[in-house]
Deep mutational scan, measured.
Amino acid sequence: PEDEKKAKEALKRANGDEDKAKEILRKLGVDPDRAEELLRRLR
């Protein structure tokens, strides 16, 4: 869904750096736990 698209985009923008991607997602208003879960799934 929408969050998943955001997560993929964030990872791309962060050049695969998960911590940076998490930060980006947090700024986009995605719940930190949700962000973590999404990134884990994309790994």
Results as ranks from 00 to 15, higher is better:
24 I>L: 09
9 E>T: 07
15 N>P: 02
7 A>P: 01
30 V>W: 15
13 R>M: 15
33 D>Q: 13
35 A>V: 11
17 D>A: 05
14 A>F: 04
22 K>Y: 12
4 E>M: 15
5 K>T: 11
39 L>V: 07
10 A>T: 02
20 K>Q: 11
41 R>F: 10
6 K>E: 07
19 D>N: 13
40 R>G: 08
5 K>Q: 14
39 L>N: 00
8 K>E: 09
15 N>K: 10
27 K>V: 11
33 D>F: 11
24 I>P: 00
10 A>Q: 02
14 A>T: 06
23 E>W: 06
28 L>W: 15
15 N>I: 03
39 L>G: 00
27 K>I: 12
36 E>C: 05
40 R>S: 10
26 R>E: 12
21 A>V: 03
6 K>P: 03
7 A>H: 02
27 K>R: 13
28 L>H: 06
19 D>W: 10
11 L>T: 01
33 D>P: 05
8 K>R: 15
14 A>W: 03
32 P>Y: 08
9 E>I: 11
13 R>A: 15
31 D>M: 09
27 K>N: 13
24 I>R: 02
43 R>G: 07
1 P>V: 13
19 D>P: 06
40 R>K: 12
9 E>G: 05
14 A>V: 06
5 K>N: 11
36 E>N: 07
14 A>Y: 04
41 R>S: 12
38 L>K: 00
8 K>M: 13
43 R>M: 11
30 V>I: 14
9 E>R: 07
11 L>I: 07
32 P>F: 08
35 A>K: 00
31 D>L: 10
30 V>P: 00
33 D>N: 10
36 E>S: 08
2 E>L: 10
34 R>Q: 09
23 E>P: 00
11 L>K: 02
24 I>N: 03
27 K>P: 01
21 A>R: 01
1 P>Q: 14
8 K>P: 01
38 L>F: 04
40 R>I: 11
10 A>W: 02
22 K>M: 12
26 R>T: 14
1 P>S: 15
22 K>L: 14
6 K>Y: 13
39 L>Y: 03
20 K>N: 05
27 K>W: 11
5 K>C: 03
26 R>Q: 14
31 D>I: 03
37 E>I: 08
37 E>G: 05
12 K>C: 07
41 R>V: 09
18 E>H: 15
36 E>Q: 07
11 L>G: 00
32 P>D: 10
2 E>T: 12
24 I>K: 02
26 R>K: 12
41 R>I: 11
24 I>D: 04
31 D>H: 12
40 R>H: 11
41 R>T: 09
42 L>E: 04
23 E>A: 09
39 L>P: 00
32 P>W: 09
2 E>K: 07
4 E>S: 07
35 A>I: 15
15 N>F: 09
37 E>F: 06
29 G>I: 03
16 G>F: 07
24 I>Y: 10
29 G>Y: 02
35 A>M: 06
5 K>R: 14
13 R>Y: 11
29 G>R: 03
38 L>Q: 03
28 L>I: 06
41 R>Q: 14
17 D>N: 10
37 E>M: 07
30 V>Q: 02
23 E>M: 08
15 N>G: 13
38 L>E: 02
43 R>A: 09
10 A>I: 04
30 V>G: 01
17 D>E: 04
30 V>Y: 15
37 E>P: 02
2 E>I: 09
12 K>G: 06
37 E>D: 08
14 A>E: 02
27 K>T: 13
40 R>W: 07
16 G>W: 09
42 L>C: 05
13 R>T: 12
29 G>F: 03
11 L>V: 04
18 E>T: 10
8 K>Y: 13
12 K>W: 13
28 L>E: 10
34 R>D: 07
34 R>Y: 14
10 A>M: 03
29 G>D: 03
34 R>K: 12
3 D>M: 11
40 R>P: 01
14 A>N: 02
35 A>W: 07
28 L>S: 07
3 D>Q: 06
43 R>Y: 07
34 R>E: 08
25 L>R: 00
10 A>Y: 02
23 E>S: 06
28 L>G: 06
10 A>S: 04
9 E>H: 09
22 K>N: 05
26 R>A: 13
1 P>K: 13
43 R>E: 06
32 P>I: 09
8 K>W: 14
32 P>T: 09
11 L>R: 02
1 P>D: 15
17 D>P: 00
20 K>H: 07
14 A>S: 07
29 G>P: 00
40 R>Q: 12
7 A>R: 01
18 E>M: 15
28 L>N: 06
35 A>R: 02
25 L>P: 00
12 K>D: 11
3 D>L: 14
3 D>T: 05
39 L>T: 01
15 N>R: 10
22 K>E: 03
30 V>L: 11
16 G>T: 01
21 A>M: 04
12 K>M: 12
43 R>K: 11
9 E>P: 00
17 D>R: 05
16 G>S: 03
11 L>Y: 06
43 R>H: 07
38 L>D: 01
17 D>Y: 03
38 L>Y: 04
22 K>D: 02
3 D>K: 03
35 A>F: 07
1 P>Y: 14
25 L>M: 06
8 K>A: 12
36 E>K: 07
31 D>Y: 05
29 G>L: 04
40 R>M: 10
3 D>W: 15
19 D>R: 13
29 G>M: 03
34 R>L: 13
43 R>F: 08
25 L>Q: 00
35 A>D: 01
10 A>K: 00
23 E>L: 08
43 R>N: 08
2 E>P: 08
7 A>G: 03
38 L>A: 05
27 K>S: 14
8 K>D: 04
21 A>N: 00
25 L>T: 00
33 D>I: 13
20 K>M: 13
29 G>T: 01
22 K>A: 09
29 G>V: 02
33 D>R: 12
31 D>F: 05
18 E>A: 10
18 E>S: 09
9 E>N: 07
40 R>T: 09
21 A>I: 03
38 L>S: 03
15 N>E: 08
18 E>N: 07
4 E>R: 10
30 V>N: 01
31 D>E: 10
9 E>Q: 10
